[in-house]
């Protein structure tokens, strides 16, 4: 058994940029967080906050013209000779043998759109068999049995028949289940789920979230759940990372982040969501303005043009860093940490 406090995956000061003709887009600009076995880390943020690029960076599949420019991604391996060791994923080439053996096997990914991430010309069964045989030493027959077993594990009715189905023959919910089965085929220790339920209806969403939770209970994997839906995060996550324009603005246990949020962005985001329990028909508190275009990121704290608590002369000049404000609770805001010495 691994020590619970040792993270299985650590991301340190990750910076991923896209070098386009129009300019550099700093999609992820210094993100740090840890993922623990048996826990769910929720990454939440609006569009353009860099949450999906973070996932792609971990798997080494950032599309051109993007690349990781700085930072470390450390994967912790099970102790084989009594000593756990860490692999720096960033130092491996994206298409190196080792990276390819990790991607899909130790770290698996479930995408948002199950229709586009499954091959339309292969049956569900063949896709699972292919993935399982690529990473594990199995015969075709064994892999076939595994596929049936996985499909029934994720709750697809008549799994023996379903392995011969093509993705278009399944409904959205069943396709997402098939995709989860595919991701589980190599017994990953980390499952990255990028908006796994966004394309689904609420009752189907409840089914899929329930499935993810029970799978985690059974095999103790770590789940990194990326979503824009605060409700899903509150439902699923143990730890939460809130991102805005490529930066982590707040990080902490789920109860703390929702109950005692400190960063003005988190606070206003939570206030602006209509809830079943809030008073109907009143004007919702909003965040003024819109998310800036990535080409013209504001200087200083990226949130300062929209921030209700902006400190003029500070927030627009200096970049805040993550500081501890309590038990495992980190906030990147000048309201909670001293302003750096002005070097004017």
């Amino acid at each position: 058994m691994q020590d619970d406090r040792q993270p299985i995956l650590s991301v340190r000061n990750l910076k991923t940029s896209f070098f386009t003709d129009e300019g550099i887009v700093r999609a992820v600009d210094g993100a740090s967080f840890d993922v623990h076995l048996g826990q769910t880390l929720g990454i939440v943020g609006e569009s353009g906050c860099g949450k999906s690029v973070t996932a792609l960076s971990i798997l080494g599949i950032v599309p051109r013209p993007g690349r990781i420019v700085e930072g470390e991604i450390l994967l912790r391996r099970e102790p084989e000779d009594g000593q756990a060791h860490e692999i720096a994923l960033t130092s491996l080439g994206d298409s190196s043998r080792e990276m390819r053996s990790i991607r899909g096997a130790e770290i698996a990914l479930v995408f948002q759109e199950p229709m586009t991430s499954l091959s339309p010309v292969h049956t569900i069964g063949n896709q699972i068999i292919g993935a399982a045989r690529l990473h594990r030493n199995l015969t075709r027959r064994e892999a076939g049995e595994l596929a049936v077993e996985l499909l029934s594990l994720v709750g697809i009715p008549r799994a023996e028949a379903a392995i011969d189905a093509y993705p278009f023959q399944l409904s959205g919910g069943l396709r997402q289940r098939a995709l989860i089965a595919l991701a589980l085929s190599c017994e990953p220790r980390i499952l990255i789920a990028d908006e796994p339920t966004t394309a689904l209806d609420v009752t189907t969403q409840a089914q899929i979230l329930d499935l993810l939770r029970s799978l985690q209970e059974q095999n103790g994997m770590a789940i990194m759940l990326i979503t824009h839906d605060m409700g899903v995060i509150a439902e699923m996550a143990d730890q939460v990372v809130v991102m805005y324009l490529g930066r982590v603005v707040e990080e902490g246990p789920v109860e703390t982040v929702f109950g005692e949020s400190k960063h003005p962005y988190t606070q206003s985001l939570l206030r602006s969501i209509p809830s079943i329990h809030s008073t109907p028909k009143v004007q919702l508190p909003t965040i003024t303005g819109t998310i800036p275009h990535p080409y013209n990121r504001p200087a200083g704290c990226p949130f300062h043009p929209r921030c209700p608590d902006v400190i003029p002369g500070v927030c627009d000049k200096h970049e805040p860093e993550l500081h501890s404000v309590g038990d495992e609770h980190l906030v990147s805001c000048f309201l909670y940490h001293p302003v750096p010495e002005t070097i004017s």
Binding site: T203, A234, E255, F258, L270
Partner: peptide, 20 residues
Amino acid sequence: AVPQPDPTLRSQRIILEGEV
């Protein structure tokens, strides 16, 4: 089935079986 943005409300959900 609606997830609420409040972690203290993780209640027992009614999970519907099957499909629409």
